[in-house]
Design a protein around this nucleic acid. Sequence first.
RNA 1: CGGGGUGUAGCGCAGCCCGGUUAGCGCGCUUCGUUCGGGACGAAGAGGCCGAGAGUUCAAAUCUCUCCACCCCGACCA
Length: 585
Amino acid sequence: MINLAKSIFLTIISKPVYSEKIAMRFSKSFIPTLKEVPSDAVIQSHILMLRAGMIRMVSAGIYSFLPLGYKVIKKICGIIRREMDAIGGQEFHLPALNPREIWEETKRVEAFGDTMFHIKNRDYILAPTHEEIMTFHAKNVLKSYKDLPQIWYQIQTKFRNEPRPRSGVIRGRQFLMKDAYSFDSTWGNLDHSYKLHDKAYRKIFDGCSLNYFIVGASSGAMGGTGSEEFMVKSDAGEDTVAHCTHCGYAANVEVAESKSEAKKRDSTKGELKEIYTPNVKSIDELCAFLKIDESQCAKSRIYIFNNEPVLILMLGNDEVNESKLIKVLGGNVRPGRPDELKDLTGADAGSIGPVGFKDKIIADLRLKDANNMYSGANKNDYHFGGIDFLRDVKNIEYYDLRIVQPGEQCIVCGNKLEVFTAIELGHIFKLGTKYSEALGANYLDENGEAHPIIMGSYGIGVERILACYIEQHHDENGIVWENILAPFKVHLIALNMRKEEVEAASEKIYNDLSSAGVEVLFDDRLDAQAGFKFNDADLLGMPLQVIVGEKKLKENKVEIKVRKTGKREDVKLDEIIEKVKSFFS
RNA sequence: CGGGGUGUAGCGCAGCCCGGUUAGCGCGCUUCGUUCGGGACGAAGAGGCCGAGAGUUCAAAUCUCUCCACCCCGACCA
């Protein structure tokens, strides 16, 4: 008797207050699909989200999620929560509206500049991220080493006044971010928290069936332990990265390096000689004219740094990487204008060279101490041959200045590098004590000494997961959902609801599926043509389509179509549930 | 912020150069009928401040100026 009462009680208290509706009728749902492609969408994920009735634009970079799209967002958030909770994360919900004062304390009002939204009639800002508020709470609560470590996270709306929103939901002015913050007492413990996030992030992106790779963001060398970016290859990407599929080396091209052989010094000592080279401008023309290899040529580029000219020498057709150049010189660099080139050297681009150049010269490492080189003679239509960088040019400084090209050898393993653009999905970052110091978030150690809490911050763009997923999982007919993120598992299509037997059979299947716990979207629209329903089903892309038509019903069968493969199979009415369940198991 | 482009019905567009009936077309929507396994057909409808403002003119979607919005390329991107 007591046991019975207990079990009833447990049943009552364990019943969830609310659970997501798993079955929907198309005729009663707001899923405004579009046949035509909206003119301002360019990339596939944007086009398909609009066409599938998942989102609508309100203003540049501001989108509404419609029920179908929001359903997927909720699933993504579910996966994120699962993995964040698994590493001990605790979910918060912080305000988006923040007092500006706290942002002044960390000097980030200035740092964000125009990217931050400011409220006009109060001293508030709309938060672009939440280091400040999280640290504010940490300061008030985490007083002792016994309170640490902590992992706090939230899934919440961020506001950034992007100068140019683009690619639909990928770069918006308002977007959802999962942001997490770790609080530790030692740097070693921070390493641990960081690794936990690294692991969780891999599980999240794997769980979402995304094909991604990881870039050490802080430096090109593999040792970038302080920060990693989780990236997805995409033409809509905003970062260009070099990636080695063999060993996993990945780096932003701004810092990427490859194995490129330096020009070796010849044992024979050539004489410096001026050569008449009429109308020869490019390296290729020079090679053709003199019948030499591009590895014997030094290309010259003139940049202006703080109003001072700098001659940059590159081997053959290597291109100058301006990011690397800026790093070397220290900012404020621009290419020289044609008139400046003429004034400085007496020649136009194509005939410029290091011999006799009076100002600063820096060269790419591949050229170090090279001899017997060809380069411009600072006189139109003339080049020098036999240049010895030790003998004929003085004070050259050497740096890595070149842009990595596709197909070059990986700096780590020597296999071929790919170069492509990518979207940043997530970023994990060892913050250290920047915010805890600025806001005075200290804890007391075992000896009663105060130390700033050591922090990490970890972000994921929620909508980007969705957009990248669609970028990677679609075909010419629409979206192709894998089981995990699909808004519904089954798209049940009644081909002609006006036929009694079709209506009766599909209603029964609908009820059976939903009571079996299968998420099902039932296209019960009365007057839509078969083709119309098929195309909508392919566009929306649920993994399995169950097609109920008059013909097959005569044999007590329906057709099941797998969206991804297009494979069709006839299934007996009383075997549908079993068939569907085995497909998803 | 620089360069380019576009704003006309819910969506996609024509008309604009060269001003002049009631501003059109396709999709979608409403009603009726016929269709019903790959975006059907017929008939009848509804729906517009032609992005906003100012100007030129007898007359402006159309010409001029200003502004705004949106898209693309670039710059920027904690």
